[in-house]
Simulated assay, not measured.
Amino acid sequence: MSSPSLTTLLPTKRQALIVATVVLLLSWLLHLLTRTPFSIVISRVGFVGICLLLAYSAAAPLRPAWLSRSAARLLAIALMAPLASLTTAFLAQGANVLNYLSETQTLTGHIFMAIVGLVFGLVMSLVAMRSERRQTERADRLQAELEKNRLERELLDARLRLLQSQIEPHFLFNTLANVEALVASGSSNAGPVLRHLIAYLRAAMPRLNDSDATLQTELQLVRTYLELMHLRMPDRLHFDVASLPELATMRFPAMALLTLVENAVKHGIDPSMTGGSIEVNGRRGIDGKVVLWVSDTGAGMAETAQPGTGLSNLRLRLQAFYGADAHLDLHEQTPHGVRVELHFTPEKTA
């Protein structure tokens, strides 16, 4: 076992300040009670106070393994108080100390000083140890809270990764199915659509697992996807994607809006004989809450399939990303179509 360093043996600045304050007050009180000159009183009380403080601070690191920290400190104070009081007599009288202590009044004074030092030393030690225990308990609680928060963040990240891994194949397979249908129909747009799909996937794939994705990158993917779908059905799909510059740098779960847009194309525009339009927009309210929406004028909720993997996972991802208050709302539009809204507060981002 390595020997304790000098830093661990010395008292802290806070402890020294408290002892200095007590020494001054106690010296002034004894000066008034005994009529002894203040300089003599404070020199003796100050010396005893310094000895007790050093004994208290050094007792814990120097104690034997079988003795507890508290017991070592109290024992050090009990031994140091009379020893320090006796030392003041040696320092004041030198070789004449025996004759000096033979006087009843002088001996009584040093015994009184030893008792005062012992009482105040033990009381101050008990107060200091209680304060240290409270600080240790607060530090332990804080450490436990930090560890809990770390584990919760890791669990949240794992949950987001799991949900993301479910959404990626869902999106990719649906997109490839659209391309397959276009090629099977012999459309002349098959070539351009395939080239746009390759360009889209080249841009989108690096962002699918991007934990630092922003709303701006999400809107770019949505716009590229809708341009691709517009090539597949140019007469039946029209769209408008807002830029939202005031929200562009906001952190946003990757592919959240893209999932809604894909559903709008698959369940709203595709089933409709006349097609329709898709709008992607949003705003920040005066209370700081953000609303993003994807609306379409397609077939509507009556002819739309029940929400599947995409919307179910999107609800979970939204709450995992922004907190329990985040939610997803679906509204039927007049005369037909669906509007899906995302409500959340960006400040709650993990």
Score class of each variant (00 low, 15 high):
18 I>F: 14
133 R>F: 03
119 V>G: 13
71 A>G: 05
289 K>I: 04
279 E>Q: 12
234 P>R: 10
291 V>M: 15
165 S>M: 09
223 R>T: 05
77 I>E: 00
240 D>K: 10
49 G>F: 05
155 L>H: 06
135 Q>S: 14
63 R>V: 04
347 E>N: 10
26 L>G: 06
89 A>L: 05
146 L>E: 09
3 S>K: 13
59 A>R: 02
198 I>L: 06
22 V>Y: 08
173 F>W: 10
268 G>K: 02
161 R>D: 14
82 P>L: 03
330 L>H: 06
337 G>P: 08
46 G>S: 09
277 S>P: 00
9 L>Q: 07
299 A>G: 06
126 L>F: 06
95 A>V: 08
277 S>K: 10
117 G>Y: 04
55 A>L: 09
283 R>T: 08
310 G>Y: 04
90 F>Q: 06
147 E>Q: 13
240 D>Y: 04
292 L>W: 02
152 E>I: 15
270 D>M: 07
56 Y>H: 11
348 K>F: 10
296 D>S: 07
185 S>H: 13
179 V>E: 12
131 S>Q: 11
167 I>S: 00
257 L>T: 02
132 E>I: 03
124 M>G: 14
85 S>M: 03
188 S>Q: 12
339 R>Q: 15
63 R>S: 05
111 I>H: 00
94 G>W: 08
115 I>E: 07
316 L>E: 05
238 H>K: 11
64 P>G: 07
131 S>W: 10
340 V>Y: 00
224 T>E: 15
81 A>H: 09
3 S>W: 13
333 Q>C: 11
201 L>S: 11
137 E>M: 11
106 T>C: 00
339 R>M: 12
63 R>M: 05
157 D>N: 15
33 L>Q: 15
327 H>V: 05
65 A>I: 06
126 L>R: 12
55 A>V: 07
127 V>R: 12
63 R>H: 04
185 S>Y: 07
324 A>E: 13
342 L>D: 01
183 V>A: 15
26 L>M: 13
100 Y>R: 04
224 T>Q: 15
23 V>N: 05
59 A>L: 06
286 I>E: 11
62 L>E: 03
40 I>N: 09
145 E>F: 07
59 A>V: 05
205 M>Q: 11
36 T>L: 11
76 A>V: 03
219 L>W: 01
109 G>H: 06
17 L>T: 15
30 L>Q: 14
293 W>L: 10
264 A>W: 01
271 P>I: 10
81 A>P: 05
73 R>H: 03
294 V>F: 02
225 Y>L: 08
282 G>K: 02
280 V>G: 01
142 L>C: 02
262 E>V: 03
315 R>F: 05
341 E>L: 10
99 N>Y: 06
112 F>N: 14
239 F>Q: 01
302 A>F: 06
83 L>E: 04
228 L>G: 08
330 L>G: 02
10 L>R: 14
55 A>Y: 05
254 A>N: 02
124 M>V: 09
279 E>N: 09
189 N>I: 01
176 L>C: 07
271 P>M: 08
332 E>T: 15
135 Q>N: 12
282 G>S: 06
19 V>W: 08
64 P>H: 14
34 T>K: 09
80 M>R: 02
320 A>I: 01
244 L>Q: 04
245 P>N: 12
243 S>I: 08
247 L>I: 04
36 T>E: 15
286 I>L: 10
93 Q>R: 15
45 V>G: 03
42 I>H: 02
66 W>K: 12
4 P>A: 08
315 R>G: 04
44 R>P: 01
163 L>K: 00
173 F>P: 00
201 L>A: 13
191 G>F: 12
